[in-house]
Amino acid sequence: MKSILRLTVNGREREDLVPQNMLLIDYLRDTVGLKGSKMGCDGGECGACTILVNDAPQLACLTLAATVEGKKIETVESLSQNGRLSKLQQMFHEKLGTQCGFCTPGMIMAAEALLRANSNPSDEEIKKALEGNLCRCTGYVKILESVKGVIESNEEAAA
């Protein structure tokens, strides 16, 4: 059974005919063509598919596309503007937080959600926000440094 899904993906309104049993991750990757969000563990344990739904982080592999009707979806592709990386993305690049890159879209979106809600999180708060995101390269220290890099750079800009 299919139904019409109306929503906003990365700032653009869309209307698509989707099967009711379609996962949001499949909708984003295969229907919309945004391949940034990754299907990792396929069961809600690794966080690689983390996207933002109305500014809150959500796992696209555990979400049915039809249940985000009318909502605002943001994937990692939404962050760069006019070909320039966002500050968070730039920090993942500079501080080597990207590692092999597979977990990165999920890590960045989970960190993006944290920074929108709390512009100056403590180390513990960053770790807590990213607890559901696994990096099989085990580059957690670099990932933590990348997120902290955004906070430091904001502080420098304000000083």
Binding site: G47, A56, P57, Q58, L59, K128, A129, E131, G132, N133
Partner: peptide, 9 residues
Amino acid sequence: IAGTTHRQT
């Protein structure tokens, strides 16, 4: 319970 992202939903 679970992780920060799970607890949102």
